[in-house]
């Protein structure tokens, strides 16, 4: 089982930030390998230097930290299936 690290960069308590956090929780619930998924949430208002390091422009940004093929999704992640698909994570609904 590979461990995947997902970092979610949000901007304070905005509505889109909250929606993105909720959607990320839903995403973890439906992911097949949920135990292998680590999630970190970073508030760019509190930690602008981390946003600088990661070269964040838009918020929310979900970053899949992967040595070979890093990926990023911008937005409130409202379409969970598409998010999983783009990140290459299988969900429980996916037929084997």
């Amino acid at each position: 089982m590979t461990n995947l690290l997902l970092r979610l960069y949000i901007a304070g308590p905005s509505a889109t930030s909250r929606r993105a956090e909720q959607n990320l929780r839903r995403l973890r619930d439906v992911a097949k390998a949920r135990d292998g998924l680590a999630v970190e949430i970073i508030d760019v208002l509190k930690n602008p230097e981390l946003a600088e390091q990661a070269a964040i422009i838009a918020t929310p940004t979900l970053a899949l930290e992967h040595p070979v093929r890093p990926r990023r999704i911008i937005g409130d992640l409202s379409d969970v299936e598409r998010v999983l698909d783009f990140l290459g994570i299988e969900s429980e609904g996916t037929k084997a």
Binding site: A11, T16, P48, A51, A55, R71, I74, L77
Partner: peptide
Amino acid sequence: PASDELIIGDFDLVGLLSRVQH
């Protein structure tokens, strides 16, 4: 950025603004 990127749903540019302000 060099990585693949996708936009899903609403977003803002507060990330950029906070970096500029920093």
